[in-house]
Design a protein around this nucleic acid. Structure first.
Ligand SMILES: [Mn+2]
Ligand SMILES: [Mn+2]
Ligand SMILES: [Zn+2]
Ligand SMILES: [Zn+2]
Lengths: 145, 145
DNA sequence: ATATTATTGATAATAAAAATCAATATCATT
DNA sequence: AATGATATTGATTTTTATTATCAATAATAT
């Protein structure tokens, strides 16, 4: 069974090479681990995962490469309240917004095409060209009520 | 011409007294300055304004009282990207969301009743009780395009 | 007035993320 | 395969925003 190179990795490698950067074992491990981890991971959580496979790796390297993933468009920062920044996978998942439980912190991913359209309309009505948006609805999730 | 005590101040004083806290000249100045300042001010900006009226005042006092304003419901934190926290006046202005220019940083306040309704519906469809939400649309404002 | 204690202002502590830097690894060139 | 240029790493320090600490002071009840 041949190991296929995942597309996210190809995209990342291309981004790296185009900028004259280099391919390293650490990068590979970090990128792989990021995409097989949970959907809203912190740098610390990813560091702990990565450390198990390669205990030599440093925290700074994980942070740096998460930043690179963001720059390349493969990841995106999510900041909720006073929590540490979380990183969302932007490959293999379409745009969505979040319902955030104020009791347990659960993130529920949602999408509403009507809302998306109205947001665009609202922006344009204000002579504003929308690029991206962030919608977070805070409340009580099903488990917590 | 008698100076009327503004309602926001009454609300704040009531909040303070109910918690067994005390009324001080610093609080009064900070609250007054906050409500006559711009709509999305940082603690640093407010500190600089307040310092002109009372150069004795400390930064920590401004921060603390902004936090109190938030607790009382009269102010709300807005965090945009990596910027310092800004504080929004929540008295005398109804709920709104923001268009945020990625070029000049301008904040445009908007509201769309249809979007608000659909957000509620979306939350409930996910067995989620919405409490509040935050919608930020990033893009290019009229001045910048 | 006095006693109690919340508040202040100066400063230190905290915490997340970015910057620094010498040692090392990568990679194009030979 | 060895070389040289330089990007990356890991450890550490720095930065920056916010919160915590604490002795002195001010506000309030008695
Ligand atoms: Mn998500
Ligand atoms: Mn606003
Ligand atoms: Zn919950
Ligand atoms: Zn603009």
């Amino acid at each position: 069974m041949k190991k296929e190179k995942s597309e996210f990795k190809e995209i990342f490698i291309k981004y790296i090479e185009d900028k004259g950067m280099r391919h390293t074992k650490q990068r590979e491990l970090i990128v792989d681990s990021f995409f097989s981890a949970g959907r809203h991971i912190t740098s610390e959580e990813l560091f702990n995962i990565v450390k198990k496979k390669n205990p030599e790796i440093g925290y700074a390297t994980v942070q740096r490469n998460l930043n690179l993933l963001c720059e390349s468009g493969l990841a995106e920062e999510i900041k909720i309240g006073k929590q540490k920044t979380r990183y969302e996978q932007k490959y293999g998942s379409k745009h969505h917004d979040h319902l955030i439980c104020v009791k347990c912190g659960r993130l529920i991913e949602v999408n509403d095409e009507k809302i998306e359209k109205l947001q665009d309309k609202l922006a344009r009505a204000n002579n504003f060209i929308p690029i991206k948006h962030k919608l977070e609805i805070y409340g009580i999730c099903g488990n917590c009520k």
